[in-house]
Computed example of a mutant assay.
Amino acid sequence: MQMLRWTTAGKGVRLGVIIHHTDAEREYAYDRTSKVGKLDKALGEAPRNGWIVVDVKQDWNRIFPGN
């Protein structure tokens, strides 16, 4: 979250992206209430800061090549 804040605070065009790991079947999933990798603050700040949230389960067809 700190890196996203720093990156998107500068002048000019900036890109802030959060990869939201939501697909427990293909990869470890974590969210706001996970034991590790909590995204509660970053997900809350994303809309206000214009950060793009990519949902692994909904937005990605494949996690690792060949799988």
Rank of each mutant, 00 (worst) to 15 (best):
R5S: 07
L43N: 04
T8I: 07
T33D: 13
E45P: 02
V13Q: 12
I19W: 10
G16A: 04
R48L: 13
Y28Q: 09
W6V: 12
A24C: 00
A29R: 03
E27F: 03
A46L: 11
R14T: 11
G50P: 05
V54A: 12
W51Q: 08
R5A: 08
W60A: 15
R48N: 12
G66T: 07
K41F: 08
A24W: 03
G44T: 08
G12E: 09
R62I: 15
G44H: 06
Y28K: 07
D23R: 01
W51S: 10
L15Q: 12
M1E: 11
A9P: 00
V17M: 10
D59K: 02
N49P: 01
G66W: 06
D23V: 01
T22P: 01
M3C: 11
G50M: 09
V54I: 15
S34Y: 05
N61V: 13
T7R: 15
I18T: 01
I63E: 06
G16T: 04
R5V: 10
R48K: 15
A42F: 01
G10C: 09
R48I: 02
L43D: 04
W51G: 08
K38F: 00
H21G: 00
E25S: 12
K57M: 09
G66R: 10
I18V: 14
H20M: 00
V54Q: 04
M3T: 14
A42W: 01
G37Q: 02
R26G: 03
I18Q: 01
V53L: 07
R26M: 07
T33V: 06
A46R: 08
M3S: 14
L4Q: 05
N49K: 14
M3Y: 12
K41H: 06
A46Q: 08
T8D: 09
T7M: 14
A9F: 03
I19M: 13
V56E: 11
W60V: 10
W60I: 09
N61L: 15
K11M: 11
R62S: 14
P47M: 09
A24Y: 02
T22K: 02
E45G: 02
G66L: 09
G37T: 03
I63Y: 13
K41Q: 11
G37Y: 00
K57L: 13
T22W: 03
E27S: 11
V53P: 02
G10K: 15
W51R: 05
I63K: 11
A29N: 02
W51V: 04
D23G: 02
E25R: 09
L4C: 05
N67L: 14
Y28S: 07
A29F: 03
A24M: 01
L4S: 05
F64E: 15
M1K: 09
T22L: 01
Q2Y: 05
P47W: 08
N49F: 14
V53S: 09
N49Q: 14
N49D: 02
Y30M: 04
R32V: 11
A46D: 08
R26D: 05
I52Q: 12
A9H: 06
E27V: 07
E27Y: 03
S34L: 04
L39S: 05
R14K: 15
G50R: 07
D23I: 02
D40F: 00
E25H: 06
W51Y: 06
E25T: 10
Y28L: 12
I19P: 00
